[in-house]
């Protein structure tokens, strides 16, 4: 269990090493190019989307998938806008700079969609129905959005409840472990025994031990989150520079002051590492719990779509899930940057 601490240090040292690879804006920037090649790239990116629209509209599908024309019209508008934007540099320097960053990606995406469209709907190179064309996925978003929205809300609710509960419990346990020898005597062996167990292993027991599969899932997500948070909070509190305590004690600090104003603030960077680990691990439990028992959420949606062999729905759910998880991690990064504003940001998400 103590091995977690060096692992975290490695994590943050890797983060520090990665920093120089980023430019001033903090994100990986597009390579510098001249004005003319910027415009050419913009025109190319626009053309790739027109190409996609052309393939979709003027080449009969092998099968019956909806929303091809809507997607194509949107692609035409988008492609035309990109081509027009080639001249943007003359009008707005700022807008052009912003666009310049994304044109390589927009070109790549246009080509990717064209290839995808050709390989699925037109040539049938990829086995059906496992690889639906892009407009089939769009169809899911347009036609089935009420159910998708409902699923996302259910997932977010479950995740937030479980994560908050686990994070709070893990934090409290971690602080107590780091602070109180008596608590550590009893809690440490229990942590060592239960902590490393994958929470999913509890699933069959949890589903009958708890009154509902929903509360069982909350428990599992909380357990998954709580363990890394507890271990890292503990190691954070335990490794606080003892000189901080000396300083505070000579200035008249009470034990409560030492815990809340010295130990906890000093341990917060470690606590956040634990929160990140817990959040990442909790996604896996969330989806599994939804697939296995909870009758709501994106995991359930995935399961349900598989039952109907509607693969387009599954891809749509995967996309939504990815956006959801990524947003939660973004939020946690934002919270960390706010709370630890006294430090220089280490990694931009």
């Amino acid at each position: 269990m103590t091995s977690v601490s060096p692992a975290t240090e490695r994590l943050s040292s890797q983060a520090a090493e990665r920093q120089p690879a980023q430019d001033d804006a903090g994100r990986a920037g597009a390579p510098a190019r001249g004005w003319v090649s910027d415009s050419v790239l913009s025109v190319l990116a626009g053309s790739s989307w027109l190409l996609f629209a052309f393939i979709t509209l003027h080449w009969p599908d092998l099968n019956d998938w909806g929303r091809g024309s809507e997607f194509s019209h949107a692609a035409i508008l988008f492609g035309a806008a990109l081509i027009l934007a080639a001249g943007l540099g003359a009008v707005s320097e700022r807008g052009a700079a912003r666009l310049r960053r994304s044109t390589p990606w927009l070109l790549a995406l246009g080509l990717f969609f064209s290839l995808w469209q050709a390989a699925t709907a037109k040539f049938g190179l990829l086995p059906q129905p496992f690889f639906p064309p892009p407009h089939a996925i769009l169809e899911v978003f347009l036609d089935d959005y009420p159910k998708l929205v409902e699923s996302v809300i259910a997932s977010i609710k479950l995740e937030l409840f479980g994560f908050s509960l686990g994070a709070c419990a893990g934090f409290v346990v971690g602080v107590l472990l780091g602070w109180s020898r008596g608590f550590g005597y009893w809690a440490h062996p229990i942590m060592r025994f239960i902590g490393p167990l994958p929470s999913i292993a509890w699933l069959p027991i949890a589903f009958f031990a708890f009154p509902s599969s929903w509360s069982a899932s909350i428990f599992l997500i909380a357990l998954t989150t709580g363990f890394p948070v507890a271990v890292l909070t503990w190691s954070g509190v335990a490794s606080v520079n003892s000189a901080y305590y000396d300083v505070a004690r000579t200035l008249g600090a009470s034990p409560a002051f030492l815990v809340f104003k010295v130990a906890i603030p000093a341990a917060l960077p470690q606590v956040f590492v634990g929160l990140f680990m817990g959040l990442g691990a909790s996604f896996a439990v969330l989806v599994t719990a939804e697939m296995m028992g909870v009758k709501a959420g994106l995991g359930f949606y995935l399961q349900w779509a598989q039952g109907w062999a509607s693969y387009a729905n599954m891809y749509a759910a995967l996309i939504v899930m990815s956006v959801m998880c990524s947003s939660m991690i973004t939020l946690l990064f934002k919270a960390r940057d706010r709370v630890l504003s006294y430090k220089k940001a280490e990694v931009q998400w």
């Binding site: 300083v247 000579t250 008249g252 603030p265 000093a266 917060l268 006294y342």
Partner: peptide, 17 residues
């Protein structure tokens, strides 16, 4: 310890946060 007798250490040990 008592705040009437305060120590300044070799390291400033300011609280970085």
């Amino acid at each position: 310890p008592h705040p009437s007798r305060v120590v300044v250490f070799q390291d400033p040990t300011l609280f970085p946060w």
